[in-house]
């Protein structure tokens, strides 16, 4: 069975060229990944701030609810949360439609909504703790000073507490954002085709699964590198009191003249995907958002318990069979797929 073990055989199994060739094509899904990550993070910050405020102010009734929410969310896997959101929202909408005669369109919910709700709520549980400890770290004297010059509670919050808490919170919230970037790769279970699902589609056409996942890994890695660097810069810009006062004016003048190197790299990366949009893929992904019959493998397993409430819903929106190994549940199908490589080689 085993043929010659050498360079040719290696290329047969793993073609490094394909890894890089397909990157632009995968990058055409980058905007949707970024969109999910950014909107979900914004949602998370708003909810996280509210939860933190409820906890700090010990608001009656809401405080135990906030505690429960944080504990529950931190105690359940994100993939389970994605599924509960995906089936939960249509369930409740259907229920409200029946009960109160609301004419809500249960099937018309764009899949991205499930992803945003699930990721936003998941991250908010973590960000609320970062925000809470950051707010508590603001010295009492700073707040008293603000009050003593006649600032209202809102002015104190906006002008003193938030700017000072932000410096403390950003490293933690930044880690949250980087996790968020990576967690977007799970939202295919809600039927959203972002980078990971997109790469799967591309792989499905060429059977170059391993190469596609290597490409994906590289893209995610670079993405998180860029994000962490931007975050460090942002934090530094907020720690303005660590700058040399004499250099401050000089630096401002320099900054005005020289284009920012970092952003120019970013812009180049963003330009590529536009050129590489694959019409065929777009068409394939746009159509069957929720197939009535769930595909085999991961899908069937996940659908079983939740199939009752929403008859039409299936957890997987991608038309292609799900045959890739990111999930433990996928382990048996993975073995079945090994022969694919033989086909490539044959």
């Amino acid at each position: 069975m085993l043929g010659p073990v050498g360079a040719e055989r290696f290329i047969m199994l793993f073609d490094l060229k394909v890894v890089f060739e397909k990157i632009p094509e995968i990058l055409s899904y980058l905007p949707i990944t970024l969109e999910i990550a950014l909107i979900a993070t914004a949602t998370s910050l708003i909810i996280g701030f509210l939860v933190a405020w409820i906890k700090i102010k010990r608001i009656k009734v809401l405080k135990p609810l906030a505690d429960f929410y944080v504990s529950f969310t931190r105690g359940t896997p994100i993939i389970v949360q994605l599924y509960t959101t995906y089936f939960g929202i249509p369930f409740f909408l259907t229920y409200f439609n029946d009960r109160f005669g609301w004419g809500l369109n249960v099937n018309g919910i764009p899949p991205i909504v499930f992803a945003l709700v699930a990721l936003g709520l998941n991250d908010a549980a973590y960000s609320s703790e970062s925000i809470r400890s950051a707010i508590l770290s603001v010295e009492k004297g700073q707040i008293e000073a603000a009050h003593s010059i006649g600032m209202t509670g809102w002015q104190t919050l906006r002008r003193v507490i938030i700017p000072e808490a932000a410096v403390v919170a950003i490293p933690n919230l930044g880690n949250g954002f980087i996790n968020m970037l990576k967690n977007t790769s799970l939202v295919f279970v809600c039927g959203v085709v972002e980078m990971t699902a997109g790469a799967r589609l591309i792989a499905g056409r060429s059977y170059r699964y391993f190469e596609m996942y290597v490409s994906l890994a590289i893209i995610y890695w670079i993405l998180t590198l860029i994000a962490s660097r931007l975050l460090v810069r942002w934090e530094r810009s907020l720690r303005r009191n660590e700058r040399d006062p004499k250099a401050a004016t000089k630096a401002a003048a320099l900054k005005a003249r020289r284009p920012r190197r970092f952003f120019s790299i970013d812009r180049d990366a963003g330009a590529n995907p536009d050129a590489a949009v694959d019409d065929a893929v777009t068409a394939a992904t746009g159509a069957p958002v929720r197939p009535p019959v769930p595909p085999p493998g991961l899908a069937s397993e996940a659908t079983e318990p939740a199939a009752q409430p929403v008859a039409t819903a299936g957890p997987v929106a991608i038309a292609e069979p799900l045959d890739s190994p990111p999930l433990a549940a996928d382990a048996p199908p993975l073995a079945d797929k090994r022969p694919v490589r033989e086909e490539v080689g044959a």
Binding site: E139, G141, Q142, E144, A145, A146, S148, I149, G150, M151, Q155, R159, V160, P163, E164, V167, L238, R239, R240, N241, P245
Partner: peptide
């Protein structure tokens, strides 16, 4: 109020500490 431990806004310059009350309040 002038405090024992000054309590200047720590991310604001000397000038901004003084202008803060004027512009915000």
């Amino acid at each position: 109020m002038v405090f024992q431990l000054f309590h200047l806004f720590k991310y604001k310059t000397a000038l901004e500490n003084v202008t803060e009350g004027l512009t915000t309040v």
